[in-house]
């Protein structure tokens, strides 16, 4: 699907990157823990989050993410949006909760970023 398809599926508002809605997306990740995003995300993907502080943008910058989806109708402040704009990020916001947003996108074919995890056998 494209970012534009995500906007339709999530009934989202486009905050930044109206001209990049035809960008294809294949995977997404959803987290409010930037530590985990930095540790597990290995590709240019979409981040679905309820966190609206500047570190979401910095994390996106370090990982070259394509698009940020803010859930529960959250809109980051101007300063944060400006930083996102400088990076050419597409930023959208949906009224859906994180759980529902993921479900709606998954139902339409979007998949999670592959995370190779193994159980640590020392931790029972």
């Amino acid at each position: 699907m494209t970012i534009g398809d995500m906007v339709s599926i999530l009934k989202a508002r486009v905050l930044l990157g109206e001209d990049k809605l035809d960008t294809p997306v294949y995977t997404a990740c959803c987290s409010d823990l930037m530590s985990d995003v930095l540790a597990f995300v290995d590709e240019k993907t979409v981040l679905i989050t309820g966190l609206t502080n500047p570190h979401v943008i910095r994390t996106s910058e370090m990982l070259d993410l394509k698009c940020l989806v803010f859930v529960r109708g959250k809109v980051p402040n101007e300063e944060i949006l400006e930083a996102a704009d400088e990076q050419g990020l597409v930023v959208i916001t949906t009224k859906a909760t994180a759980f529902s947003a993921c479900g709606m996108l998954y139902a339409e074919g979007l998949r999670g970023v592959p995370v190779p995890l193994e159980w640590n056998t020392e931790d029972k």
Binding site: L33, M34, S35, D36, L38, A39, N53, H55, T59
Partner: peptide, 11 residues
């Protein structure tokens, strides 16, 4: 702020 998951050094 979204940190402190204990992934920093291993990452």
């Amino acid at each position: 702020l979204g940190f402190g998951a204990g992934m920093g050094l291993p990452n």
